[in-house]
Computed example of a mutant assay.
Amino acid sequence: MILCCGEALIDMIPTVDVHGRNAYVPHPGGSVFNTAIALGRLGLEPGFLSGLSTDLFGKMIQNSLAECGVKHALSVYSDLPTTLAFIELNDGHAQYHFYDENTAGRMLTEDMHPPIPQTVSAIYFGGISLIVEPCCDFYISLAKRASLDKVVMVDPNIRQSFIRDVDRYRARLDTLLAACNILKVSDEDLDWIAPGPLSLLEKAKELRLKGPEMVILTRGKDGATAIFGDDEIVDVPARKAHVVDTVGAGDTFNAGVLAALSVAGVLSKAGIENVTASVVKDVLEFGAQVAAINVSRSGANPPWAHELSGLIPPFQNGKNTV
């Protein structure tokens, strides 16, 4: 099982009502929630660990997880409210305004860790849950523990407006990097993590020195790059798509990467350490394919497996479905 750990919230999607007035439609979302949903739709039967509310919005989130085959029994439930994120779209690009104080997702502490089943082989962390306190410590300590025998993938997906103490956040991020095997960063994330005149590729190589065996760099319409092994580099172009908006694009890409690594039989510590360039190319291309479908639709709406006929890459071990 792939266990996705991080926030689930309600995205308030802008729309126009029948009278032409601006309005918002509630839609379950959150960076890590989106990745879990995408994995479920691809048939991976993932798990989800978060702080979930028993309120109206929390039930919407739980129903959405169940509908996509995502197991959420490991989550911590409370009657605290659900985080809300109001989305502002500018030329198809999403900006987020969060309402997150004293919410079920945020108020997690280290003593709330559930036991992680042996069936979990890989754990994914990301999003605002790695920034805000106290839940950031809940997830970072869990990552450190899991890294002893499980593959850990991290996408910091940095939201600068959430960072109150930059030095404390950078220190926590370094702890997380030391615990992870796969780090995925956008070009914007990378320039924030490693400011300075170096190229993106040079910065990605520097981050590998902090712990990850593989760094995946995404650059929007300019494609994705993976650095791994003995500084091997694989580049893939972005998939052409009619972009409606970019909500959930990176989250869906991450799900595609995890799904493809799993199908290729390399989602293990030994597998990541010895992965070949041909498999990495297939993995990145599949991530780009599923992300392209997501951006062609409104909101975070990852594809289902039945929509991918003819798109699954020919992995080296002969498997061709997820």
Results as ranks from 00 to 15, higher is better:
Leu84Tyr: 03
Val18His: 11
Val322Gly: 06
Ala204Thr: 09
Pro46His: 13
Phe57Asn: 02
Asn102Leu: 09
Cys136His: 06
Glu285Cys: 09
Ser31Asp: 12
Ala146Met: 12
Leu65Gly: 09
Asn320Ser: 00
Leu284Cys: 14
Glu206Phe: 07
Gly250Phe: 09
Thr175Ala: 06
Ala38Arg: 02
Ser147Gly: 01
Ala270Ile: 14
Ala255Pro: 03
Asn157Thr: 11
His93Gln: 09
Gly318Glu: 13
Ser121Gly: 13
Pro237Lys: 06
Asp55Asn: 06
Gly47Leu: 08
Met112Asn: 07
Pro212Lys: 09
Phe48Met: 01
Arg145Ser: 13
Phe86Val: 10
Asp189Cys: 05
Pro46Gln: 01
Glu213Ile: 09
Ala238Gln: 05
Asp137Cys: 05
Gly47Asp: 03
Ala178Lys: 02
Phe162Gly: 02
Pro314Thr: 06
Gly58Lys: 04
Arg159Gly: 10
Thr246Ala: 04
Asp251Gln: 03
Val275Cys: 06
Phe125Glu: 02
Ala241Pro: 02
Ile37Gln: 04
Asn181Ala: 10
Val247Trp: 03
Val247Thr: 07
Gln289Lys: 07
Gly196Trp: 05
Asp11Tyr: 11
Asp165Gln: 14
Leu308His: 14
Ala241Gly: 07
Thr246Tyr: 15
Ala122Lys: 03
Leu267Arg: 12
His19Ile: 00
Pro26His: 06
Leu52Ile: 12
Val25Asp: 12
Tyr77Asp: 00
Asp155Trp: 03
Asp187Lys: 12
